[in-house]
Simulated assay, not measured.
Amino acid sequence: MAEPTFWLTIAAAGLAGLVILTQAMLKGWRGWLDLQRMQIDSRREDQAHAAAPSPASRIELADLKERVRKLEAIAAGVDL
Rank of each mutant, 00 (worst) to 15 (best):
M1L: 09
A2R: 13
A2Q: 11
E3P: 05
P4N: 13
P4L: 15
T5H: 10
T5C: 10
F6K: 06
F6E: 04
W7R: 08
W7E: 06
W7I: 05
L8W: 10
T9A: 10
I10T: 02
I10F: 02
I10P: 00
A11P: 03
A11M: 07
A12T: 01
A12W: 12
A13T: 06
A13D: 00
A13N: 01
G14A: 05
L15H: 07
A16L: 02
A16P: 04
A16N: 07
A16C: 04
G17C: 04
G17A: 05
G17Q: 01
L18F: 03
V19S: 01
V19T: 05
I20T: 00
I20K: 01
I20C: 01
L21D: 04
L21Q: 03
T22R: 02
T22Y: 00
T22V: 07
Q23S: 10
A24K: 10
K27D: 02
K27L: 06
R30S: 12
G31T: 06
W32Y: 13
L33E: 07
D34M: 09
D34F: 01
D34N: 12
L35G: 13
L35N: 09
M38T: 11
M38D: 13
M38W: 14
Q39A: 13
Q39D: 06
Q39K: 12
Q39S: 12
Q39R: 12
I40P: 00
S42R: 14
S42P: 01
R43Q: 15
R43T: 11
R43H: 14
R43W: 13
R44C: 05
R44D: 08
E45P: 03
E45A: 15
E45S: 12
E45F: 13
D46W: 15
Q47K: 15
Q47R: 14
A48T: 06
A48V: 06
A48G: 07
A48L: 08
H49D: 12
H49S: 10
H49W: 14
H49T: 10
A51T: 00
A52T: 08
A52M: 06
A52V: 05
P53L: 07
S54L: 05
S54T: 01
P55L: 07
S57T: 14
S57H: 08
R58S: 06
R58M: 13
E60C: 11
E60R: 14
L61R: 15
L61F: 15
A62E: 03
A62S: 05
K65I: 14
K65P: 02
E66H: 11
R67S: 13
V68F: 09
V68L: 12
R69P: 00
R69D: 09
K70H: 15
K70I: 15
K70Q: 14
L71M: 06
L71T: 11
E72L: 07
E72I: 08
E72N: 08
E72R: 14
A73N: 06
A73T: 07
I74R: 12
I74L: 09
A75S: 11
A75C: 13
A75V: 10
A76I: 01
A76D: 11
G77P: 02
G77H: 05
V78W: 11
V78D: 10
V78M: 10
V78K: 09
D79P: 03
D79C: 02
D79A: 08
